[in-house]
Design a protein around this nucleic acid. Structure first.
Lengths: 209, 209, 209, 209
DNA sequence: CTGTAACCGAGACGGTACGTCCGGTCTTATA
DNA sequence: TATAAGACCGGACGTACCGTCTCGGTTACAG
């Protein structure tokens, strides 16, 4: 997706000096770096962003209406593509999805995006809405799709609420990554979660596993 | 615990006019009301708090070092006591715990506390640490205790990681309450989560349930 | 005249910390110095004044609505008192008045005030109006008074327009000080002007002088 | 004098599209109109001039280094030719010169030029220097020439400083036109000034007039 | 009962950032 | 090459809060 398309110049024929893409990149990179370095979005000011990127404030306001809109584009520039699913069996696809989530929880960039997007949820709902639409919703749709296929193929109980099933898988990972930032995300976590959730916690499972 | 003890006057013999407890309550109540009305902690300023409570700024700074410390006391004043557990069987105790979580997710006060505490996690880790220690940790300990008892009583597989088990139960509720604020928390949700998690998602459960 | 009276606090009873007179003086002194150093009023910004005086911008805006109003107070602080007139004869009084004008044209402070006040005449007429009322008008009234007394005492033709007479005396001095800043104001200039103007330019004056 | 000559194209052989003289006139006319309408030179910006004239900013900067240089050309375009002197007697010639000065003080164009040129004296001395050389100096030379001739022909005292005599004549007119913009310049003013200055202010003039 | 010390409200203080506007320079497409 | 348009960096605008400070006035304990 071209960034320019989302913040178009007002009208039709292009006249005058065009906006510099280099400047645009410098601004977005600057914000990215600052967030990555632990500066929260609330602490960021347009003034500081401009100073960091060596850019006039007007140059930023010409493109975005404020740091919130800018942050949305930063998220877009950072989030990786959807993971490729092997498609062999539901269990393995779920592991891939959760492993992808784990990786993003470990990466400082995507992690910082998530934390800051969520932190601004109350003060500027637009940010969280955009983050949700661009990042959360696609992965969620993917997960539901995998579960639906699993149900069709007999790998999943047919009487279970798919939304709830998805939350049971994603919840433990998010809880650790988002709400307990001191928690670790060890290597086998994705498999462990998927298998435990599929198996259930009842002790009577003699034949399974 | 007396609030006054946590923000003591500097030294020994009490001289001069004592601090007014009424003023103290007015300040905390004011902050509570503002947060409840959708004003985020980031948008709050000591200036505004003082105006709202009809109080001088110095009166606030005399007691707390800033709005973060003040917020911690607000949280303390708001959070209810731990729920009482029937203790009959693990499943019912878990339902009570999750139901308690659901209620707190529905209550505007406690919900606002959680959201704001988490939103400030990055910018002021002290807030989240205090919230965690005062609110999260006790409930978490309670949950782990219930699970441990269940394991001992044969209601829970012995080979499951208790931390993970707890996250599987709490995760879906928190995911909905915290990360998807548009999601509903319908009435039977606690039972539904507990039962589905205990049962697992595998289809082969002909005899169980 | 007390400066405080001209920029009063909004209402009646004095509450809160009173405004610092030291800060007030520092600001006015700072502007004075800058103008004296050749910085024109147009080049001055409130930002710069604040930086120079080591003062916050709000501290300036709390007292004055902008640099124009501030300048008016600077003028008030700089202009010296009216000269004392010997009152023996009209000719000597006129010399004293013109000598006073010459001195003020030579002094960098008063000279800078005049030039800047006049330069802003078009862009902010309030400045020139205030300067005129505070500085020009009193001296002019003084001059007219002296001339009127001279007319009464037979030292001045009775058929001459007093306004014009005053302009004839003051004009040459101002022309040199204001419109031809490279011109000198040599020591005997006041006497020379007064005597030449009184005497006239016609050659037939054999007996006089 | 061709205006183009004073702002030449950089070098030798003329290549590419030639500069439009219509554009040049439009710019100068625009500035003239703005000044005449009471907009001070300090309030003018190249940006605004360009907008008014419907011209790109670069088109202006290609010809002049800034609004100051442009203003000098505007002055050149506005100032009328020197007055023709009858040459019969000094007194009448002086009246013609002062009447010419009065007319220019009454005309909005020339008056605006003078005020703005003088207002910018401090901030951009080049403007006043140019104005002085182009407008003031020639008239002044003319006046001194007339006085010198009058001295030779016995119409003027030989012991008077010609520079001072000139200032005595011009001063009252300028004082009113420049420093007291509310003052009127009534019809017979030129004669009144000349006659009063020649005659002097002493009452003993029984035979004269 | 009187000092006196800490309290209280208000608001001034030096700063920082806000979002807007305009300065002069630079860079494009078009003529 | 000239032109009109407009992006570029920089900097001032006047406002809002920041956290500290300094007022006049209040309150409650100690002597």
């Amino acid at each position: 997706m071209s960034l320019a398309e989302s913040r178009p110049r007002p009208d039709g024929p292009v006249r005058g000096r065009p906006r510099s893409e280099a400047v645009e990149r410098a601004i977005i990179e600057g914000v990215m770096k600052l967030l990555e370095d632990g500066v929260s979005l609330a602490e960021l000011s347009v003034e500081r962003i401009a100073r960091t990127a060596g850019v006039g404030k007007a140059t930023i306001y010409r493109r975005w209406s404020g740091k919130e809109e800018l942050f949305i584009d930063v998220v877009r520039a950072v989030e990786p593509a959807d993971p490729e699913l092997p498609g062999v069996c539901m269990r393995d696809d779920l592991v891939v999805l959760l492993e992808n989530l784990r990786q993003r929880g470990l990466a400082s960039r995507t992690s910082a995006m998530l934390h800051n997007a969520h932190a601004q949820m109350k003060s500027s709902p637009r940010i969280w809405a955009a983050y949700h639409a661009n990042v959360v919703a696609p992965r969620r749709a993917l997960g539901l799709e995998v579960l639906r296929r699993g149900q069709r193929d007999g790998e999943l109980r047919t009487d279970v609420d798919l939304e709830l099933a998805n939350d049971m898988l994603v919840g433990p990972m998010l809880t650790r990554a988002v709400l307990r930032p001191d928690a670790e995300l060890p290597e086998g976590l994705a498999e462990q979660i998927v298998d435990t959730v599929l198996e259930g916690l009842r002790p009577v499972r003699s034949t399974a596993s």
